[in-house]
Amino acid sequence: MKFLKFLIILVFIFNTAYSNENRSELINKISKNIRCLICQGQSVYDSNSDFALSVKLVIGKKIDQGDSEKEIYEFLEKKYGEWITYDPAFNKKTFILWTLPILLFLIGGAIIFRKVNVQK
């Protein structure tokens, strides 16, 4: 179990620590997480609508200005509302969304632990 914990911690550290992508890759990465507001369930990356094209341009411009990925998401959210991002932030409205699955996972683990005989 200790080994597992160690693994999980490692994963989280390294997951947030990479950042050497070039410009067009970064545009793709960001636009995959942005909803095309005038389309039916498509991301900006997947869409060729006028809206999607102009959002892609805006993202490119912001990158050139030296904005970070996070700042770009914040900018778009401020302008179009939270609905535009596919990656809901952790806040008052969404803490149930993020924690409920994990809570259920822990409860499930506890049930199995009680059902199983470790001795003998």
């Binding site: 989280f12 995959k32 991301s43 596919y86 990656d87 969304l97």
Partner: peptide
């Protein structure tokens, strides 16, 4: 969740690939 949130508080949020990847992929290990 987005359906309930919209009904209860009128807030619209989108839940897409990043959410599922964050919660599912680490547990895959």
């Amino acid at each position: 969740y987005p359906i309930f949130l919209e009904v209860l508080s009128n807030d619209k949020i989108s839940i897409g690939p990043p959410f599922y990847h964050k919660l599912i992929i680490p547990v895959l290990i």
